Simulated assay, not measured.
Amino acid sequence: MIQFALRCDDDHRFESWFKSSEAFDKLHKAGLVTCIICGSSKVEKALMAPKVRDSRSQRPAETPSIQEQALAALRKQIEQNSEYVGMNFAREARDIKDGIAPERSIYGEARPDEAKKLIEDGVPVTPLPFVPGRKSN
């Protein structure tokens, strides 16, 4: 996992985690990296200094930033008010739109090509600014 500092064309700044630099590039090219504040897909990497800490120093943990707090609150709201459908997200979202499955809020995971196809077909979806936690029994 790699964390990037990002900036949209309205100069909103935020950070997000990606599986790899290549994963960011693929999602960005598909228009699936969006600003967490305004939703713009005109997002670029911003200059970011790596966080390096001397293993010998024992500094207290930093207080989460306002953006980190907002992301945590958003994640909590989504997890409490939506159903996690895992890798079945694309199928479930399409079934809901087509009236095959009951209408409800869902979240999960989809490959970039699946997400792009949903958007092209008018299925209302948006990428989350965090990786969903996988739920198990």
Score class of each variant (00 low, 15 high):
Met1Asn: 06
Ile2Gln: 11
Gln3Asp: 08
Phe4Asp: 02
Ala5Asp: 13
Leu6Tyr: 11
Arg7Ala: 08
Arg7Met: 13
Cys8Ile: 12
Phe14Tyr: 13
Ser16Asp: 09
Ser16Val: 03
Trp17Gly: 02
Trp17His: 07
Phe18Arg: 09
Glu22Gly: 09
Asp25Met: 05
Lys26His: 01
Lys26Asp: 00
Leu27Ser: 01
Ala30Leu: 11
Gly31Lys: 15
Gly31Ser: 14
Leu32Ala: 13
Val33Ala: 11
Val33Tyr: 12
Thr34Glu: 15
Cys38Thr: 07
Cys38Arg: 08
Cys38Glu: 07
Val43Thr: 10
Val43Tyr: 07
Lys45Arg: 15
Ala46Phe: 06
Ala46Asn: 04
Leu47Pro: 00
Met48Asn: 03
Met48Gly: 02
Ala49Thr: 15
Val52Arg: 05
Val52Trp: 03
Arg53Trp: 00
Asp54Cys: 08
Asp54Tyr: 08
Ser55Gln: 02
Ser55Tyr: 04
Arg56Asp: 00
Ser57Thr: 12
Gln58Tyr: 03
Pro60Glu: 09
Ala61His: 06
Ala61Lys: 12
Ala61Thr: 05
Ala61Ser: 09
Glu62Pro: 00
Glu62Tyr: 02
Pro64Lys: 09
Pro64Arg: 10
Pro64Thr: 10
Ser65Phe: 07
Gln67Asn: 05
Gln67Phe: 07
Glu68Trp: 01
Ala70Met: 04
Ala70Leu: 05
Leu71Glu: 04
Leu71Lys: 06
Ala73Gln: 11
Leu74Gly: 09
Leu74Trp: 04
Leu74Tyr: 10
Arg75Met: 12
Arg75Ile: 02
Arg75Val: 03
Gln77Phe: 13
Gln77Gly: 11
Ile78Cys: 02
Glu79Arg: 14
Glu79Lys: 14
Gln80Ile: 01
Tyr84Cys: 09
Tyr84Pro: 01
Val85Lys: 08
Val85Pro: 01
Gly86Asp: 14
Arg91Pro: 00
Arg91Leu: 15
Glu92Leu: 11
Ala93His: 09
Ala93Gly: 08
Ile96Asn: 01
Lys97Ile: 02
Lys97Leu: 11
Lys97Asp: 01
Lys97Tyr: 02
Gly99Cys: 04
Ile100Pro: 00
Ile100Phe: 08
Ala101Cys: 01
Ala101Leu: 06
Ala101Asp: 10
Ala101Thr: 06
Pro102Lys: 14
Pro102Tyr: 05
Ile106Val: 15
Ile106Ser: 12
Tyr107Cys: 04
Gly108Thr: 07
Gly108Tyr: 10
Glu109Gln: 15
Ala110Leu: 03
Pro112Ile: 08
Glu114Trp: 13
Ala115Val: 10
Lys116Cys: 01
Lys117Cys: 00
Lys117Tyr: 04
Leu118Met: 15
Leu118Asp: 06
Ile119Val: 15
Asp121Tyr: 06
Val123Cys: 01
Val123Gln: 01
Pro124Glu: 01
Pro124Ile: 04
Val125Ser: 00
Thr126Trp: 02
Pro127Val: 02
Pro127Lys: 03
Leu128Glu: 04
Leu128Ser: 04
Phe130Gly: 05
Val131Asn: 13
Val131Ala: 14
Pro132Gln: 12
Arg134Pro: 00
Arg134Ala: 14
Arg134Ser: 11
Lys135Tyr: 14
Ser136Gln: 13
